[in-house]
Design a protein around this nucleic acid. Sequence first.
DNA 1: AGTATTTGACCCCC
DNA 2: GGGGGTCAAATACT
Length: 105
Amino acid sequence: MMQPNQPTVVQRRVVVNLLDDGFKWSKYGQKDIVGAKHPRGFYRCTHRNSTGCRATKQVQRTDGNPSLFNVVYLGEHTCGDNAASSEQSQDKHSSGTLAKTTLQG
DNA sequence: AGTATTTGACCCCC
DNA sequence: GGGGGTCAAATACT
């Protein structure tokens, strides 16, 4: 499965960008939010049980722009030197609640 | 075989 | 009671 020619791969590529924007996230749940047009995905740090990173991330599609992903960071990252050490420098300021919009068109 | 991912159910808070 | 959030088990892919 998964042919290297499917458009799904392209979309997945973008999703991975949101999931791997600085840390490693694993999807641990998905719920349909009342009032929202699309379900919300819940992600948690892959090293939550290794580095004690209690940081969680919420990814929800905006109502007006189905191509716009609203990424919200909750909690504090304690694995700032053990998990993904690539682009985290630009997003390590996740202390508390953060709202960020990414993926356009 | 291992890990990551998916769906459902349960729990908590307002 | 409703909504939101988290955990657990099962499944799929590498």
